[in-house]
Write a protein that binds this DNA or RNA. Structure first.
Lengths: 185, 185
DNA sequence: GTCTATATGTGGATAGAC
DNA sequence: GTCTATCCACATATAGAC
């Protein structure tokens, strides 16, 4: 085996952990597994990251790049946002691992934070009208529902549905929530 | 300690398991914990139910009583369905435990089954018009999203929102999905 | 049917030589 | 920084006396 520097080893461990946690989740990934994939040993994993949970949290970050969405006309935001979420493989892995690990208080906290700034935030920014805060949170719930049905439940029919169809239908639904309700009188 | 019959012991174990699994989830509940709460020992737990996973599955049943919903006017189904879900504490416990345990293939299967007959089924029965199947599944995803936001993420603002408000807003949203879309021409 | 004692495995984390 | 060897806690599950 080639001799590596400390920083290199650290990165190997981080990369291995990222992959395994996303593929198998927190509880089904052991420190030993991570060490093996990184071609090192459990002691180094702990030395570099302290605990398994700290390492996990270190791999569970999402930086949604909001830029491509900034230029989208408000009327098309719904479908575009859905399309963005479905296309991103990172989101899927992180989302799944966090949901399934959310028994652990720290992991649940991270899930809340990501839900807040990845879903609620962008939606809230496009919302006006009465009850904007509440409506943003309900819209975020709707978004969560799609990811939940596709990735947690793996509703076979939905999984087999063409992405464009999902984007059209679900995007339209989301769009309705964003567009301020027209007063009835 | 009072001497019990085998059937009684079995029931005590089942009751203890039901409670603990719903409160703490699968991975954080040990066979020892269950035995202790049932005032017996781990050996009997296994003797009666085979494995921890089989016992878990045995406690994870939902029989949604569809009857109260049968007489609801179609136009009010959305809010009533949401109200029904939020009011039922059983659903919350089962849903949470299944979602968090869905790393295990068998548990995921059970989640799929319950999603199918508790959410998709009733919705599909009320749907007509084009793409009824797909729309039922999307509506089920929307429902899942509410439970997800409330119980998995525990969005604090949503949790603090009066149930009637959630029922009104989210119920209306669901209702839109059920009501067949009016042709635009 | 019931229980004590234990087999057996796996996990995270650490000690200490190099 | 790295690695071997190991500690220790805890899990599920079983053996076998009663």
């Amino acid at each position: 085996m080639v001799r590596r520097t400390g920083a290199e080893t650290r990165e190997e461990i981080h990369a291995a952990a990222t992959r395994l946690f996303r593929e198998r989740g927190y509880s089904r990934t052991s420190v030993r597994d991570i060490a093996a994939l990184a071609e090192t040993n459990p002691a180094l994993v702990i030395r570099h990251f302290g605990t398994k949970e700290l390492l996990f949290l270190d791999t569970m970050h999402l930086t949604i790049d909001d830029e491509p969405l900034l230029n989208v006309p408000p009327a098309e935001f719904g479908p575009r946002f859905v399309a963005r979420l479905l296309a991103d493989d990172d989101i899927r892995g992180v989302y799944l691992a966090l949901v399934r690990g959310s028994n652990e208080p720290q992991i649940k906290e991270r899930l809340q934070a990501i839900h807040e700034h990845t879903f609620v935030g962008p939606l809230r920014a496009r919302l006006t009208g009465p009850d904007a805060d509440l409506r943003a949170r309900l819209a975020a719930a709707v978004i969560g529902g799609l990811l939940y049905a596709l990735w947690v439940v793996s509703d076979e029919q939905l999984v087999a549905t063409a992405p464009e169809t999902l984007i059209t239908h679900y995007g339209a639904l989301l769009q309705q929530l964003i567009t301020p309700p027209t007063p009835t009188s």
